[in-house]
């Protein structure tokens, strides 16, 4: 029973982090129509910045805020410096076919990931750094009973649920959110309504970068920080989106929790080595029966 609860809580807490990654990916996907493979590279870079700040004996929360800003700034910079010029090139022959028009920006994001990782390596010597958690990561006990979760697990779950709810409110209840949804759903009608879709898209990149940074800071105490330390998180978050369906925000979040629990149960009841096989099995099963994800409405965006 205790083992089961531990698996459940760890899974939920990890699932919450994956959900944040997935949310960031979906925001950019819906706004700009590409999977941003550099996303966790941005987060890694900002985690290094945060770690540098903390090493200077500055308060964790200042570092937290700086990391969020840095992640957002990197996201915005990628949109302005790479994606916008890319969209302007749509006249070139290779970009005239729709499948390539979708593939090329994805490849660009892989290149950006390479740049960010090697730049981090050059700046911070690629050393693996420990990273503190804001609250204790040791087992929590209430009275004499050891609880199957830690203070940090609870912190992560609460923080991330707050962020998920805030993001949903932002998208559904505010004017900016309406502009973001309208631009994602139908760019032309949005532009004809006077919405500055370009700026709105950049905003999506910034938001996505910030969310990714939070996710990065939440796993850093467990994985440490190194140029490649967030690759796994990126891949799991992406798989969550694919399983849940990229066009459905809550679908990807659900996919993330499914994966979080799956991984945690495989880790505890089977062997950590089987994690990827498990993920792959789920992914293949979903792709065979629901090629556009579990929660896709209608046909997937035709790419």
């Amino acid at each position: 029973m205790q083992t089961f609860l531990t698996a459940l809580f760890t899974g939920t807490s990890h699932g919450a982090i994956y959900a944040l990654v997935a949310l960031g990916l979906v925001l950019v996907w819906r706004g700009a129509g590409l999977i941003n493979f550099a996303q966790m590279g941005q987060a890694m870079f900002s985690a290094y910045i945060a770690s540098t700040i903390i090493n200077h004996h500055i308060n964790y929360w200042w570092a937290f805020i700086v990391a969020i800003i840095a992640g957002g700034a990197l996201g915005g910079a990628i949109d302005v410096l790479v994606i916008r010029p890319l969209k302007k090139k749509s006249g070139s022959s290779i970009l005239s076919s729709p499948s390539m028009r979708d593939a090329i920006p994805v490849i660009a994001s892989l290149g950006i990931l390479g740049i960010l990782q090697s730049a981090a390596g050059m700046i911070w010597a690629g050393e693996e750094r420990g990273f503190p958690a804001p609250v204790s990561t040791l087992g929590l006990s209430i009275g004499k009973r050891a609880m199957p979760f830690t203070r940090f697990d609870i912190f992560v779950i609460v923080l991330i649920w707050l962020i998920l709810i805030a993001t949903t409110l932002l998208l559904n209840k505010t004017s900016v959110g309406l502009a973001m949804r309208a631009s994602a759903l139908n760019m032309e009608v949005a532009r004809l309504s006077g919405i500055r879709t370009r700026s709105i898209r950049t905003l999506g990149w910034i938001l996505s970068g910030s969310l990714a940074s939070v996710a990065g800071l939440m796993v850093a105490p467990a994985t440490n920080v190194s140029p490649n330390s967030l690759d796994l998180l990126m891949i799991i978050g992406f798989t969550a989106c694919v399983i849940g369906g990229l066009n459905s925000l809550w679908g990807s979040v659900t996919g993330a929790f499914i994966l979080g629990l799956t991984i945690s149960f495989i880790n505890i009841y089977d062997a950590p080595g089987d994690v990827f096989l498990g993920i792959f099995a789920i992914l293949i099963a979903v792709m065979i029966f629901r090629p556009s994800g579990l929660f896709a409405k209608g046909k997937a965006r035709n790419v």
Partner: peptide, 28 residues
């Protein structure tokens, strides 16, 4: 057979995870 049904990002994701699952198969 799976890929033919998938559109862009879904195919990219499936192949990426396949590559990652490969070491596990080698260990299995």
């Amino acid at each position: 057979l799976v890929a033919a049904k998938l559109s862009g990002p879904y195919l990219a994701g499936t192949t990426l995870v396949l590559a990652l699952a490969m070491p596990t198969v080698a260990n299995k």
